[in-house]
């Protein structure tokens, strides 16, 4: 097993041991923290497909995270109030079924990613960063000023949505669902990276002219990766809203985009398990430093600065060496 493989195995073991230990020791708070880390990791897995594999520096992924969250919030709030979503051309009501909500969250965020991506990918470099950031902010302002679903105050859902055969209100059972989806997401990302599509995408990042020469269009490859990336981040958004039983425009804010990107990088961009390691570290820092000082973001900022300036490759880069790092 390579060193990165060993590090990845250790991460998976940690993901299993910590929650099971916390569950046995009857520490529901730690189970909830672990769930948060798992969900954020899934959002990061989504971003990593665009960022690590595709080389697209998107500062607008909060848009998809938030759309996933609002898909859950809107569907569940309609189910809660027994008001149909719309009556024409046929009556469609809300739902409290998780799989259905996930499906809607993924389709809508995929559609949004298609629109944002189709426009933003007309440019590259600094333009792309600014444009994705701006489109993210557009969704934020829309959510703030759209009064039908709570506007600035957000939406509260009283009961967590259901999953057939499980009691999602038991923290460890909800964690199991999220963990399962994270593993599926990681498996999918690994498959994607090795597929002909993933190889072409990787090539389009490193040498777009050559990719064009052999008859493929980098724009299409990138757009498809951007959509896939948005879909996964959207799914994470739906789970995150379900964890909190609350969704608000904060999910759309530029800070959310920044934080998702930060832990992807802290973990190691382009590494399969980078987002997972990064999300775990992020939650750990938030918990530990947040206990030490109210102003823990200062320390997070300093740490990030040090990693960017002196320790490129992130945690996995430090632990596993740099030989297989992307970009």
């Amino acid at each position: 097993m390579s060193r990165e493989g060993a590090v990845n195995a250790a991460i998976v073991a940690l993901l299993l041991v910590v929650p099971v230990g916390a569950w046995l020791a009857d520490e529901p708070f730690i189970v909830t923290l672990a769930t948060r880390a798992v969900i954020l990791a899934l959002a990061g897995v989504g971003l990593n497909i665009a960022l690590g594999l595709g080389g697209m520096i998107s500062l607008g992924h909060a848009a998809f995270f938030g759309i996933g969250g609002y898909a859950m919030g809107i569907l569940a709030s309609h189910a809660q109030s027994y008001e149909p979503l719309f009556n024409w051309p046929m009556t469609i009501g809300g739902t409290q079924s998780m799989p259905l909500i996930w499906l809607v969250a993924m389709s809508v965020s995929g559609l949004a990613a298609l629109m944002v991506g189709a426009l933003s990918l007309r440019t590259t470099g600094a333009y792309f960063i600014m444009i994705t950031l701006a489109f993210g902010q557009m969704f934020y302002y829309f959510a703030v000023s759209w009064p039908a679903y709570g506007g600035d105050d957000g939406l509260s859902i009283y009961v967590r949505n259901g999953f057939p055969g499980l009691n999602t209100l038991v923290p460890v059972q909800f964690l199991a669902i999220c963990l399962m989806l994270l593993m599926l997401g990681l498996g999918f990302a690994a498959m994607l990276a090795r597929s002909p599509f993933g190889l072409a995408l990787d090539a389009a990042r490193q040498a777009p002219e050559r990719v064009e020469t052999v008859g493929m269009r980098p724009y299409r490859l990138r757009l498809m990766a951007f959509v896939i990336s948005g879909v996964i981040t959207g799914l994470a958004g739906a789970l995150y809203a379900d964890l909190n039983r609350f969704v608000s425009p904060v999910m759309f804010s530029w800070q959310t985009s920044g934080e998702i990107m930060v832990f992807v990088i802290l973990g190691g961009a382009g590494r399969l398990f980078g987002p997972v390691a990064g999300a775990m570290l992020f939650i750990l820092l938030e918990h530990v430093l947040g206990g030490v000082s109210e102003f823990w973001h200062v320390y997070l900022g300093l740490l990030l600065l040090i990693v960017v300036l002196f320790a490129r490759g992130g945690i996995i880069g430090l632990l596993a060496g740099r030989q297989v790092a992307h970009g």
Binding site: I129, V298, L300, G301, L304, L309
Partner: peptide, 21 residues
């Protein structure tokens, strides 16, 4: 640009929390 984005994002965190402090 990625490094620039991350480092200046870190600066935002430091400036904002420093000002709050």
């Amino acid at each position: 640009h990625l490094d620039q984005v991350l480092a200046t994002f870190a600066l935002i965190l430091i400036f904002s929390e420093g000002t709050r402090w």
